[in-house]
Design a binder for these strands. Sequence first.
DNA 1: AAAAACGTATCA
DNA 2: TGATACGTTTTT
Length: 767
Amino acid sequence: MALSLSGDDEEYDSECEQQQRAANRPKQPQQQQQQPQPKMGTSSAAVKLPSNRSSSGARRRRTRCRKCEACLRTECGECHFCKDMKKFGGPGRMKQSCIMRQCIAPVLPHTAVCVVCKEAGKEDTLEEEEDKFNFMLMECSICNEIVHPSCLKVSDASGVVNDELPNCWECPKCNHAGKSGKQKRGPGFKYASNLPGSLLREQKPVKEEGDVVSSAAKRRPDREETPRPEDKLRKKRKLFDDDEDEDLGVRKKEKSDDPYFSKLLHQIKTEEDDEDAYEEENEEGREPHFRGGVERKGRLGDAEEEGDDRDSRNELLNPFIKTPVGDSDQSHCSSPQAGPSSEGGSETQEKGQRPKARRKRRLPNRELSRELSKALNQEIQKTEDCLANENRQPLKVEPETENEEPKKLFRNGSELGDQRPHLKTKEMNGTPWELRHFYPSPITPLGFNRSTPTNRPAPPHSPPKCVQMERHVIRPPPISPPPDRLPLKDGKTHVIQREVWMKIFGYLTHQELCVCMRVCKTWNRWCCDKRLWTKIDLNRCTSITPLMLSGIIRRQPVSLDLSWTNISKKQLSWLINRLPGLRVLKLSGCSWAAVSALCTSSCPLLRSLDVQWVEGLKDAQMRDLLSPPTDNRPGQLDNRCKLRNVEDLRLAGLDITDTSLRLISRQMPLLSNLDLSYCNHINDQSVNLLTAAGTTTRDSLTEINLSVCNRVTDHSLNFFKRCGSICQIDLRFCKQVTKTACERFIAEMSVSVPFRLKEDKLLQKSS
DNA sequence: AAAAACGTATCA
DNA sequence: TGATACGTTTTT
């Protein structure tokens, strides 16, 4: 089908698509009634597809890249889809891949060919990035046509590369025609709405009116007629309204920010090439901006004008945004890991002329500060506007722009209006996610509210706006995005290789990375490397916007701190379902309403969970949290505790009792570090439960924090004697615990395990 | 030829 | 709005 794209479609109506499918399905009882008409008449799917998009060809199905983390996994055998498989004893009706194996960067099938020349992608035969780009197959997310950029005749138009998806762009024709990217998110699919738990909804193309855009897009002929994206945008905005409009006007470029880099910049070729496009971006900060923005705002403050801000926002916010293709980047990014097709393409960095493409980036950062958030918001709006405009205007290739995706976001979603929070980033670069402790938690027991254990810092409450995420495909950034060396103006390349730069970037904070991202396309790309964003910290970010969520997904952090944010359940659920590799999740200070998202999702790899001071989290909620997933979303069924692999659990400030501890001792066999500070209902019996014979916690516990637990007495120390691995017992500020008892404990334990009093009532194994 | 699985229609 | 079903596509 895919191939067939265009030509024929005209005949069909846009609606066909859906119907087509319907037609295909003979079976369903009800269907008959409704019978979608088979306009297509026939049923062959292939045929049908084409018809759908009238104007363009049918969308081509994509296939797994076989290289990404997901593709390399083995089937879990536990998700809904696996259970349906015959190999796992199921009926085999669903025919879906294992949830854990949903490809992150689906590629065009090998059978895909250029609509114009009918040949496959040839990027593998070329060396220059530009060439590669020009000869690789690119699928338009709007008209679905698959072509070699070099086969296009449109000269001045530029395409907008979608970095998120390999070989995906908004072709010059569509772009020039002002078609909006419609919601289509390009070929990539499942990740979003189809997945269980996805919050995004699929947009059903034709059907809904809302999709004006999409439908429009579908039709080729009528492009012009098609409703403009703007419409949608407006709608969206309304939904989220932002206040950022004003900002839009503001943005500008920042170029100058870092005088420091200026020299470098001059030398860097990238920019030049892209020149226009590129510069704009840089200067204006589109991609760079957004990043820069973040940082700057965070740090620099105003430095960036709007441009920067935008970028940063985009990144964070719009995960979907694609990087400007400009160069080869697009491809890189998009499918860094992905398959073949993507590979080839990826490099085109600067190519140029031909179809120019632009891409956008997004940076998810944690460091967004409020300022940043504002900036982000602005950017978002801008982006929206831009998107609307951009569609009509051809972009040039840029290395890292992120327009494309953002567009989608906006369109679909909601994004625009969001509130952009500020993300703050700390530096996570390179940090091993292994942290088992959440240091940062603002709420450290002993820290502030010592005296008022029960009071929790008021979490920022901002009503989460409705986040409607569309179903976009959110993909993680590529690892080691090309090029290998920094292109210089004189046509040569910098002596230092990418990996060396990467090591250097590894020492930078997120803010600094954002600054670097504004330097040039190449750096922009490199700095977006997933390895540099293993930890994302949005602690106390006043509002979590859809774009931010997208940005997070794209970066696939191993550690995510959403403490004291007003994230909603829907948002959290959406995130969790898309962060299969998440190990550390901090939700302290969030509402139970939000945290309850954990009840319906499975986080098999979660090792550290922080739910301190979560309002409304009591025994009943703990039960829900620890019981097997209740939800029926596919892939979510599991009879085991959702948090069975948690080693570090932070429950400070919760009104939980022995009921919860009993569950914990049974359901969390790997629990090593438990924080129960400020839990006023915890008493000696609680400790007894945790250390009772037959419990796994008895041997797994290495650290326990019972500080400010006024019901705990000296007697608890006796229970800890039976813990084989205990290394630290924090009983500070426990009114009923005496120093004498602690000393006695040390004396008695000294025979086998030497302990010491690190602080008053803070027992620590002295190794 | 068969297995895998994409993408969407339809069901609930 | 999520879950299920399934024709078709794509790979093996």
